[in-house]
Write a protein that binds this DNA or RNA. Structure first.
Length: 290
DNA sequence: TGAGCGATCCGGCGGC
DNA sequence: TGCCGCCGGATCGCT
């Protein structure tokens, strides 16, 4: 499942592959057309397949950037700028190819839902096995308020202060620390995998109340989150279940995860425990994490 | 007013 | 082997 480092990997390869190219036509899968006809919001948000295709036609992709776990396609047509916001959900993937059969893995090829045909003849394809991802065409970030509510990028200078300030508020002080750090308004792009890892590395129990952790430890936790995210970006992301970059390649970070998905603590050998926090499974070592 | 919960987008997979 | 139920990012709407 793609988190911030995986999305960063996609953007780093997508930006040079897509920038400067103009979209000639759009194909939307029958599956999505059917879902949308049943009034579901499958992948295409707040727009019909026909309107999406009509508006995207003729758009030039000027740049591709990342904000938290969102991919921003910066677009221009007739002198106006637009933004296509892509979230990969659980299992989304982009592929830049010349023919669809260049998408080697059957499980992705079977679930290609949107294809951008480029004026130069190439293709940009969005595949999504579970259809939890989204494509949202807007004018600018301000058209979709949740985008404006996101925490600063974790590598920004302001991110640590933002995190520590919110930890002190009554809203977050009573919540389990894992729920706090996975809230995108508190820290951008820290999902289950990297939250689990950073908590293990700092010896903090995922269920500990945020307000019961010293500012010093919270500062160390934030630094560790940033460290883990940075390591994962360098390793090309973690390919837990369905992450692939635009060339269909998996990342290598999963081999370096020390707690996520583990049965035994790599530090002391104790059997790991799991608990549900904010509806998600959390793994931790009952001996090393307090 | 806002916190909290359930529903919603689904296919894959573990378990029986 | 087939079917049921669980899982999960993020948002939204209801209580």
């Amino acid at each position: 499942m793609p988190e911030l480092p995986e999305v960063e990997g996609v953007v780093r390869s997508l930006a040079p592959a897509a920038s400067g190219r103009t979209i000639r036509d759009i194909a939307v899968s029958d599956t999505i057309i059917k879902s949308k006809s049943e009034a579901k919001e499958a992948i295409l948000k707040n727009i019909s397949p026909e309107e999406f295709a009509g508006r995207m036609r003729g758009m030039t992709i000027t740049d591709v950037t990342r904000r938290s776990k969102y991919i921003y396609f910066h677009l221009r047509k007739d002198g106006d700028t637009h933004l296509l916001v892509s979230h990969l959900g659980m299992s989304g993937a982009w592929f830049a190819v010349n023919e669809m059969d260049e998408v080697k893995e059957e499980k992705f090829r079977r679930h290609i839902h949107v294809i951008f045909g480029m004026e130069d003849g190439g293709l940009l394809a969005y595949a999504d096995i579970r259809r939890f991802g989204e494509l949202r065409l807007i004018g600018a970030e301000s058209d979709h308020p949740p985008l404006l509510a996101m925490a600063p990028e974790p590598f920004d200078d302001s991110a640590a202060g933002h995190f520590l300030d919110l930890c002190k508020t009554s809203k977050y002080a009573g919540k389990p620390i894992k729920e706090t750090i996975m809230d995108g308004k508190v820290i951008s792009g820290c999902g289950n995998i990297y939250a689990t890892e950073a908590l293990f590395r700092t010896g903090i129990h995922p269920g500990r109340k945020t307000g019961r952790i010293s500012l010093k430890r919270l500062g160390l936790l934030f630094a560790e989150i940033r460290q883990v995210l940075g390591e994962a970006i360098e390793a090309g992301g973690s390919s837990i279940s369905d992450y692939r970059n635009i060339n269909g390649e998996a990342g290598g970070m999963q081999d370096r995860l020390r707690m996520y998905g583990r049965q035994y603590c790599p530090a002391c050998g104790t059997a790991t425990k799991r608990m549900t926090i904010a509806g998600r499974t959390s793994v931790y070592c009952p001996k090393c994490q307090h």
